[in-house]
Measured scan of single mutants.
Amino acid sequence: TEIRININGVTIHVRDASEELKKLIEHLLRLGADEKEIREVLHRWEK
């Protein structure tokens, strides 16, 4: 699944996002995570 996240005008594009990762990101956004925090989570997730 491919997702695009727009945070304050900055688009983060994620290829091959699992449903689990998608739910995690949606949850973090609801909690008010910023772009830097989302990128950090994505970076750690890929490892």
Rank of each mutant, 00 (worst) to 15 (best):
T1D: 10
T1I: 14
T1W: 14
T1H: 15
T1C: 15
T1R: 08
T1K: 07
T1E: 11
E2P: 08
E2I: 08
E2Y: 06
E2D: 11
E2M: 07
E2A: 08
E2R: 02
E2L: 07
E2F: 06
E2N: 10
E2S: 11
I3L: 15
I3N: 02
I3F: 13
I3Y: 14
I3G: 02
I3D: 03
I3V: 06
R4M: 11
R4I: 14
R4E: 13
R4D: 09
R4V: 15
R4Q: 14
R4C: 12
R4H: 13
R4L: 15
R4Y: 14
I5D: 01
I5Q: 01
I5F: 10
I5S: 00
I5W: 03
I5Y: 05
I5M: 04
I5A: 01
I5G: 01
N6G: 04
N6L: 11
N6P: 06
N6E: 14
N6M: 09
N6H: 13
N6K: 10
N6D: 11
N6W: 07
N6F: 14
N6V: 13
I7E: 02
I7A: 05
I7N: 02
I7G: 02
I7Y: 04
I7M: 10
I7P: 01
I7L: 10
I7C: 06
I7F: 12
N8Q: 07
N8M: 09
N8W: 04
N8V: 04
N8R: 04
N8H: 08
N8K: 07
N8D: 08
N8A: 08
G9W: 02
G9D: 06
G9T: 05
G9A: 04
G9Y: 01
G9Q: 04
G9N: 08
G9H: 04
G9I: 02
G9S: 04
G9R: 02
V10N: 07
V10P: 01
V10A: 09
V10C: 06
V10G: 06
V10E: 09
V10Y: 07
V10Q: 08
V10I: 11
V10M: 06
V10S: 07
T11Y: 09
T11I: 12
T11M: 12
T11A: 08
T11F: 10
T11L: 11
T11G: 04
T11N: 10
I12D: 01
I12K: 00
I12W: 02
I12F: 06
I12A: 02
I12Y: 04
I12L: 08
I12G: 00
I12M: 04
I12P: 00
I12E: 01
H13P: 06
H13T: 14
H13I: 14
H13N: 07
H13V: 14
H13D: 06
H13F: 12
H13R: 06
H13Y: 11
H13K: 09
H13W: 09
H13S: 10
V14Q: 03
V14W: 04
V14S: 01
V14T: 02
V14H: 03
V14P: 01
V14D: 01
V14I: 09
V14C: 07
V14A: 02
V14K: 01
R15V: 12
R15K: 14
R15Q: 14
R15S: 12
R15A: 12
R15N: 10
R15T: 14
R15M: 13
R15E: 08
R15D: 09
R15P: 15
R15C: 03
R15Y: 12
D16P: 08
D16I: 06
D16C: 13
D16N: 14
D16G: 10
D16H: 13
D16L: 04
D16R: 07
D16Y: 08
D16T: 07
D16S: 08
D16V: 06
D16Q: 12
A17V: 08
A17S: 05
A17I: 07
A17F: 06
A17R: 02
A17D: 04
A17P: 11
A17G: 09
A17Q: 04
A17L: 06
A17E: 04
S18P: 15
S18E: 05
S18H: 05
S18R: 04
S18M: 04
S18G: 07
S18N: 10
S18T: 13
E19S: 12
E19D: 11
E19R: 10
E19L: 12
E19P: 14
E19N: 09
E19M: 08
E19Q: 10
E19I: 11
E19G: 07
E20M: 06
E20S: 08
E20P: 06
E20V: 09
E20L: 08
E20W: 08
L21N: 00
L21G: 01
L21R: 00
L21P: 00
L21W: 02
L21T: 01
L21Y: 02
L21M: 04
L21F: 05
L21H: 01
L21D: 01
K22M: 14
K22P: 02
K22R: 11
K22S: 09
K22E: 10
K22H: 10
K22W: 13
K22A: 12
K22G: 06
K22C: 02
K22V: 13
K23G: 11
K23N: 12
K23L: 14
K23Y: 12
L24M: 12
L24N: 06
L24G: 02
L24Q: 13
L24H: 14
L24S: 05
L24T: 10
L24E: 15
L24P: 00
L24R: 08
I25Y: 01
I25G: 00
I25W: 01
I25C: 02
I25M: 06
I25P: 00
E26N: 11
E26I: 12
E26F: 14
E26D: 12
E26G: 08
E26H: 11
E26L: 12
E26W: 13
H27N: 14
H27I: 13
H27M: 09
H27L: 12
H27E: 13
H27C: 07
H27F: 09
H27R: 13
H27V: 11
H27T: 15
H27Y: 12
H27P: 01
H27W: 11
H27A: 12
L28I: 09
L28T: 04
L28Y: 12
L28K: 08
L28A: 14
L28P: 00
L28Q: 05
L28C: 08
L29Q: 05
L29S: 04
L29C: 05
L29P: 00
R30A: 14
R30D: 12
R30Q: 11
R30V: 12
R30L: 13
R30N: 14
R30P: 02
R30Y: 15
R30K: 13
L31T: 14
L31P: 01
L31G: 11
L31R: 15
L31F: 10
L31N: 14
L31E: 11
L31D: 12
G32F: 03
G32M: 03
G32N: 09
G32Y: 03
G32H: 05
G32T: 02
G32E: 05
G32Q: 05
G32K: 04
A33Q: 04
A33Y: 06
A33S: 09
A33E: 03
A33R: 07
A33P: 03
A33N: 03
A33L: 05
A33V: 10
A33K: 06
A33T: 10
D34W: 03
D34L: 10
D34K: 07
D34Y: 04
D34F: 04
D34I: 05
D34R: 05
E35R: 02
E35D: 09
E35N: 03
E35F: 10
E35P: 06
E35W: 06
E35T: 05
E35Y: 13
E35V: 09
E35G: 05
E35C: 05
E35L: 08
E35M: 08
K36P: 07
K36D: 13
K36M: 11
K36F: 10
K36G: 10
K36H: 11
K36E: 11
K36I: 09
K36V: 10
K36N: 10
K36C: 03
K36L: 07
E37T: 14
E37R: 11
E37M: 12
E37A: 10
E37W: 13
E37C: 10
E37G: 07
E37H: 10
E37D: 08
I38L: 08
I38Q: 00
I38W: 04
I38T: 01
I38V: 06
I38F: 06
I38P: 00
I38H: 00
I38Y: 02
R39S: 04
R39P: 00
R39Q: 07
R39H: 09
R39F: 06
R39L: 09
R39D: 15
R39W: 05
R39G: 04
R39K: 09
R39T: 06
R39C: 08
R39N: 05
E40D: 09
E40P: 00
E40C: 05
E40I: 07
E40T: 06
E40M: 05
E40G: 04
E40A: 06
E40W: 07
V41Y: 04
V41W: 08
V41H: 06
V41T: 13
V41E: 12
V41D: 00
V41M: 11
V41I: 07
V41R: 03
L42Y: 02
L42P: 00
L42T: 01
L42M: 03
L42W: 02
L42I: 15
L42N: 00
L42F: 03
L42R: 00
H43S: 12
H43T: 09
H43G: 05
H43E: 15
H43K: 15
H43D: 15
H43Y: 10
R44Y: 14
R44W: 15
R44M: 08
R44I: 11
R44G: 06
R44S: 10
W45M: 02
W45S: 01
W45G: 00
W45A: 02
W45L: 03
W45H: 04
W45R: 00
W45Y: 08
W45I: 03
W45T: 01
W45N: 01
W45Q: 01
E46K: 03
E46W: 10
E46S: 04
E46F: 15
E46D: 15
E46P: 03
E46V: 06
K47P: 15
K47T: 15
K47R: 10
K47S: 15
K47F: 15
K47L: 15
K47W: 15
K47Y: 15
